[in-house]
């Protein structure tokens, strides 16, 4: 048997799920990651240390193990009839939150110290200083690495296949189980990933170039 349009369609639908899962991971990860980034530069040492500990633990564990932990952990607390996307979504949100937090902490800290001080001298409140002075500048710096990390998220959603969620990689495995042509099938799957990721990489690079315009 060979690859038929039906198989291709099945893989393409898997591709849509990959995009959906990436979106969940990115949005959820952004919300938690932003809070963590702020916690990492908080004036309270306790808050700083807690956030740093969380990030250390998540970054020190492979995503595969994180996914298994959520998959079996949710069953442990009695939620064993949830669809696979819940475990996969939770795992990826936790994973991306830790990495986004570190990326954004770096961006916040790269806003020159004088800007923080000037804001304070102008008697801006903490909230005003953040929203009016620091964030607009930090966001400019943050766009390129964030888009770059988006590529990592898309690629890492392939691991959701281990908890049985049917995205691109799992769709590829299933198709391969019916037609036994692993090489062809996974080349097609890789091509799908490439089509999703390459524009993001190119976009990230062009953002980087634009940002670096003063230093060329």
């Amino acid at each position: 048997m060979s690859l038929t349009p039906v198989h291709l369609q099945f893989i393409a639908i898997g591709g849509l799920w990959t995009i959906g899962l990436s979106a969940i991971a990115f949005i959820g990860g952004s919300i938690i990651g932003f809070a963590l980034a702020l916690a990492r530069i908080s004036p309270s040492p306790l808050v700083r240390r807690l956030a740093a500990g969380y990030i250390q633990i998540v970054q020190g564990t492979p995503l595969l193990v994180t996914l298994f932990l959520f998959y079996f952990g949710l069953a442990v607390i009695g939620l064993d009839r949830l669809p696979a996307i819940v475990a996969a979504g939770f795992g990826l949100v936790v994973y991306s939150s830790a990495f986004l937090a570190e990326i954004w902490r770096g961006c916040l800290e790269s806003v020159p110290k004088t800007q923080w001080e000037a804001a304070e001298c102008l008697a801006l409140t903490r909230w005003q200083r953040m929203t009016r002075v620091i964030l607009p500048q930090a966001m400019r710096i943050a766009t390129a690495p964030t888009v770059g990390f988006l590529v990592q998220i898309v690629k890492n959603t392939s691991l959701a296949s281990v908890v049985g969620f049917v995205e691109l990689a799992q769709a590829g495995k299933l198709v391969n189980n019916t037609i036994f042509e692993p090489f062809t099938v996974f080349i097609v799957v890789a091509a799908f990933y490439f089509v999703i990721c390459y524009p993001l990489s190119a976009w990230s690079r062009s953002l980087e170039r634009k940002l670096n315009v003063g230093r060329r």
């Binding site: 990689a169 090489f183 996974f186 890789a190 990933y193 490439f194 390459y198």
Partner: peptide, 22 residues
């Protein structure tokens, strides 16, 4: 470099594994 950086490791592992076999 571009191909490797824009495809997941999982798929690369499958390709190498089955590639050797084929």
């Amino acid at each position: 470099v571009e191909t490797i950086r824009n495809t997941p490791l999982l798929v690369q592992i499958f390709l190498v594994y089955f590639g050797f076999a084929s």
